[in-house]
């Protein structure tokens, strides 16, 4: 494992490029993911998120640049030893439709050499504890997605790659998965997550990278980004329905105090941009 600034890097990507025929999907992608982090890889459809995950998990070779996972080049990851250390759910992972959830997971406990007890634990984590005997063909899309997630949790991977893990889920199940991922992360699992759900990223990630047209345009902590892009404005909503915006400066203090002392104020707030707002500002594109 390579050490940078005293912290282990699980993933190191430098000047990564991927060309499909005459189409360049990744132009210049560089980032690092530290051990224990939940890293959000954000970008609109077609920006290269899945391509990056495929390269990082050894399903595809890069055209140029370096990509290291666990401190070794991705081309060396295809040994059983390394594969036991990471887990992947991509948007086109599949299950055996004719088999039950249990049988699908049992196969993987054998492949990863873990105990059968992990099946119950993993299904509990995705809220499917009672569906063990259900045939996969009878599952909804969201349930299928949760089984896939459970499957990658079986072997307790150190590093988890999730390609839009909640894209097919309703809010209640998204929340359940989010809590599960937070818990995993608390226990030390490093998570690399792609999404175009900015709220999800904000909620889960300690670092986010904005990917646009195959280029990483911004990389920082969500909190820092929001601070950096915060408008220096105080918003005041008055009881009579008026809304005012005052500069966040000493000069506004007196005016604000007036409103407060006359009990006219309904609400005072600072204007926090969402990650979505920042993305639009940085890339000039909506995140859809």
């Amino acid at each position: 494992m390579q050490e940078v600034f005293g912290v282990e890097n699980m993933i190191e990507v430098k000047s990564l490029e991927k060309i499909f025929g005459d189409k360049q999907a990744l132009h210049d992608v560089s980032f690092q993911v530290k051990k224990g982090e939940t890293f959000g890889f954000l970008g609109p459809s077609g920006s290269g998120k899945t391509t990056t995950i495929k390269i990082l998990t050894g399903q595809m070779r890069q055209s140029a640049g370096t990509a290291n996972v666990f401190g070794v080049p991705v081309s060396k990851l295809n040994t059983p030893e390394y594969r036991k250390r990471f887990g992947v759910v991509t948007d086109n992972s599949g299950l055996y439709a004719r088999l039950t959830i249990y049988d699908n997971l049992k196969l993987y406990t054998d492949l990863y050499d873990v105990s059968l007890q992990r099946i119950d634990e993993a299904l509990e984590a995705v809220n499917l504890g009672s569906e063990k005997k259900t045939q996969v063909s009878k599952l909804s899309k969201g349930m299928t997605q949760r089984v896939l997630l459970a499957r990658t949790l079986l072997h307790n991977p150190e590093l988890l790659f999730l390609d839009e893990p909640t894209s097919a889920l309703d809010p209640a199940n998204s929340k359940h998965i989010h809590n599960g991922l937070k818990e995993l992360n608390r226990q030390g699992t490093t998570i690399f997550l792609t999404t175009h759900d900015m709220e999800e990223a904000d909620h889960l990630c300690s670092q986010v990278a904005f990917l646009n047209k195959g280029v990483v345009q911004l990389l920082d902590e969500p909190k820092q980004l929001k601070k950096q892009y915060r408008e220096e404005i105080i918003g005041i909503e008055l009881k009579d329905g008026r809304e005012l915006e005052l500069p966040l400066k000493a000069s506004s203090a007196e005016e604000i105090q007036q409103y407060i002392s006359r009990e006219m104020v309904e609400r005072i707030y600072t204007k926090e941009p969402t990650l979505g707002d920042i993305f639009v500002e940085v890339t000039g594109r909506e995140l859809v």
Partner: peptide, 14 residues
């Protein structure tokens, strides 16, 4: 066809 080979290939199975 069912995208299940991908999962097997990403597992320790050769």
């Amino acid at each position: 066809e069912k995208n299940t080979l991908r999962g097997l290939m990403l597992s320790p199975a050769t």
